[in-house]
Amino acid sequence: MYINRTLLLLLAIAVVFIPTAQEWVISGGTAWYRPYLIWLVIIALAWWNQRKSYGDDL
């Protein structure tokens, strides 16, 4: 099975940081946009990850 290594690394990072991120979101009070900031970071990482992949590996 050929799993993208960067993806595995990101998953590992996500597992480590999820509790911290969750606390950060909850403690935001009126800063309701905090989940979206995390989401944006994830999208940026996904874009970066797919950008360096090339070829037809599907």
Partner: peptide, 18 residues
């Protein structure tokens, strides 16, 4: 249309849903 588009969708659809 082809495989690589799905890769684009991995961040594109997330952006759309955001």
């Amino acid at each position: 249309p082809d495989g690589p588009r799905l890769r684009t969708a991995s961040w594109g659809l997330s952006s759309y849903l955001l």
